[in-house]
Design a protein around this nucleic acid. Sequence first.
DNA 1: GATGCGTGGCG
DNA 2: TCGCCAAGCAT
Length: 307
Amino acid sequence: MLQQTTVVAVVPYYEKFLIRFPDVAALAAASVEAVMQAWAGLGYYARARNLHACAQAVVARGGFPRDIDGLRSLPGIGPYTAAAIAAIAFGVPAVPVDGNVERVMSRVCGITDPLPVFKPAIAAAARQAGIDPAAQARPSDFAQALFDLGAGICTPTKPNCLLCPWQGDCVAHRLGIAAELPRKLAKAKRPVRYGAVFWLIDANGQALLRKRKPSGLLGGMTELPGTEWRGDPWNALAEAPMAAPWRAAGQVVHVFTHFELRLEVYAAQVEVIVADGFRVDAAGLADAALPSVMRKCVAVATRILPS
DNA sequence: GATGCGTGGCG
DNA sequence: TCGCCAAGCAT
């Protein structure tokens, strides 16, 4: 859950998740739909699919691998997570390199080349630091200490070098460029895409939903029926799932990692829904695995057409 | 190696 | 308001 996601955002999901899936056996036995539903709103949904597949792999092989390579072979576990589990769960002297550690090491070593080009050098520097006897003796504490140094002192902007235990060894601090590191390649501008979604409920208060394909953007999540997303806006009403007294409810703007999406929301009520998809009680949408962008759409639609 | 993949908070 | 960023991984 913590992959690219803040602790504050994760905690409530983590607590509910552990109640629902208390151990690896329970997670492996659950349906992938149940896992997606518990993950809905947290983002990066491939993590949820991978975690479920990972649990099943662990159960199938009779337990967790305890070495880096074995962990690394599990779905959703890459170099960082493998090292973190090995060090924190099993006391293996490995140094997990996350964004915090990259920042700390790039500053201590004074690496001015931009990420991600210089990632390997930063990882090597972290490994080198882990060779310290104290780090070897307490791999978990060393990893946690590096995280905390990055999160609390060696922060992205305005690092508090005065409190830093590594100040005397820090090349960037000596050069007065700590706050400028690590340098990063310029990001491409975020393009805008346009589309429309349709909120359709029948006389019984049932709403029409669809399931997205299992992979790709919002893979496996539930969505409102809608159009494809294009580079330019157009009148999408002709593409509604069925003829109905459609009313424009408003626009939803949602920012994804690599593009911005602007969705026109249309709403209508009919006697009987005749369209592809499945129906759920519109008042009980809390149980649906709706990603945040779709929750926004529902909120806009129900403003003019309460469920 | 570069790109695709969510979401919310903060300066 | 907006760009940056967060305990990255898969392809």
